[in-house]
Deep mutational scan, measured.
Amino acid sequence: MQFKLIINGKTLKGEITIEAVDAAEAEKFFKQYANDNGIDGEWTYDDATKTFTVTE
């Protein structure tokens, strides 16, 4: 399945899409990606669109 991350950071904005087995695997990848890029904010997930959003 495809999952999307929308980044609304103070210094980094954009979107990335990955293939993952389930939402838990996608969330783990996205949170590591955000951590690696210094993004720390509020997370939301929309199951209907398979979209995670992080907002700083």
Rank of each mutant, 00 (worst) to 15 (best):
E25C: 02
D40W: 03
Q32H: 14
K31G: 03
K13Q: 04
E19L: 14
A26W: 00
N8E: 14
T53N: 07
L5G: 02
A24I: 12
K50N: 09
T11K: 04
T44C: 03
K28C: 02
A48P: 08
T53D: 02
I16C: 03
I16D: 02
T51A: 10
T44Q: 14
F52A: 01
T44N: 13
K13D: 04
V21G: 10
Y33F: 06
L5D: 00
Y33K: 06
T53W: 11
F30D: 00
E15R: 06
I7W: 11
V54T: 06
A23K: 14
V21N: 10
F52D: 00
T44D: 05
Q2K: 04
D22S: 07
K13V: 05
I18L: 11
G38V: 10
E15Q: 05
Q2E: 11
A26H: 00
T17E: 13
F30P: 00
E15L: 11
E15G: 04
G41M: 02
K10M: 04
E27V: 15
L5V: 03
T49M: 14
N37E: 05
M1S: 04
K10V: 07
F3D: 00
D46E: 08
K10I: 09
G41Y: 02
G9R: 09
G9Y: 07
F30T: 01
F30L: 09
E15S: 11
K4P: 00
D40M: 12
Y45D: 00
I16H: 05
Y45V: 04
G9S: 04
Y33I: 03
I7G: 02
I18A: 11
E56R: 08
I7F: 13
A23L: 15
D36W: 12
T51H: 09
D22F: 11
I18N: 07
W43C: 01
E25S: 12
L5M: 04
T11C: 04
Q32A: 14
V21T: 14
D40G: 08
T55F: 13
K50R: 09
Q32K: 10
T17Y: 12
K28W: 07
E56V: 08
E25L: 08
D36F: 14
D22L: 05
G41S: 02
F30Y: 14
N35T: 06
A20F: 06
G41D: 01
F29G: 05
Y33Q: 07
I18F: 11
